[in-house]
């Protein structure tokens, strides 16, 4: 699904046919899949004890969730831990699950809370206990990818978060608004601002010195 999401980034932007395309993709997937249920149905089945349902949910969301954390924390190991922690939280809270929202939103809301808690703890340790955060990991990937990360890292914090949630997690404006507790119009305007800022950063000539190690505030969200 993750590959499908990434591939859909381009195709999704071809205008108002997006929803139809996604729906068609879902339908085709449903036809081919052994478990044709929606995420919410799977989660309900899991809350009733179906281990297979959770297996299917896990296979659908393991990579997107790992990507969610991997793009937001510096250390890959921490991203793994947080991914694991999020799935375990879903596991623990399964009995209390109520399908009042999309499972995707529910999952990212949990992930977001865990991410915030992780940031708070790390910042507290670094501020008051003098514990250093883990050693920065060497930048990997192509030059284009590194430049992209730097550019995203320079965006305003909230705008960057909105941009990532929209582009990678593919949340709708309403879902982002719910997740970040912002008005939908604010989400839209800040997303536009983030895209414009990113466009400017990507099109502007980049001096070599700026690709050197990121400042802490520019690393990740």
């Amino acid at each position: 699904m993750y590959a499908r999401c990434d591939a859909a980034i381009g195709s999704r932007l071809k205008g108002g046919k997006v929803e139809l395309m996604i729906a068609a993709a879902k339908n085709s997937e449903a036809e081919n899949s052994a478990l044709p249920e929606s995420d919410e149905q799977l989660m309900l089945a899991f809350s009733r004890g179906s281990k297979d349902a959770f297996g299917e949910l896990f296979s659908r969301y393991k990579q997107p969730l790992f990507g969610f954390f991997r793009r937001r924390v510096t250390d890959p190991e921490q991203a793994e831990e947080l991914t694991q922690e999020t799935f375990l939280a879903v596991l623990r809270a399964a009995s209390r699950y109520e399908p009042s929202a999309l499972f995707r939103t529910y999952l990212y809301a949990i992930g977001f809370k865990i991410l915030r808690a992780h940031r708070r703890k790390a910042a507290f340790r670094a501020t008051f206990l003098g514990a250093a955060t883990r050693e920065p990991v060497a930048e990997s990937g192509t030059g284009e990818e590194v430049l992209l990360r730097h550019a995203v890292g320079k965006l305003d914090r909230i705008e960057r978060e909105i941009l990532l949630l929209r582009e990678f997690e593919q949340l709708s404006y309403a879902e982002i608004a719910e997740l970040l507790r912002l008005p939908v119009n604010t989400v839209r305007s800040r997303l536009f601002r983030a895209r414009m800022a990113l466009r400017d950063l990507l099109t502007a000539p980049v001096p070599k010195s700026s690709v050197s190690p990121l400042k802490p505030s520019e690393e990740r969200i």
């Binding site: 932007l13 790992f66 793009r71 990818e145 582009e167 990507l202």
Partner: peptide, 24 residues
């Protein structure tokens, strides 16, 4: 706007390690 969004597709994330899958 389309180009900006497409440029983000260059930001790839490696596959989740198998040990995380196993532990979960």
């Amino acid at each position: 706007l389309r180009a900006t969004s497409q440029s983000l597709s260059a930001w790839n994330v490696p596959a989740i390690p198998i040990n995380v899958e196993q532990s979960i």
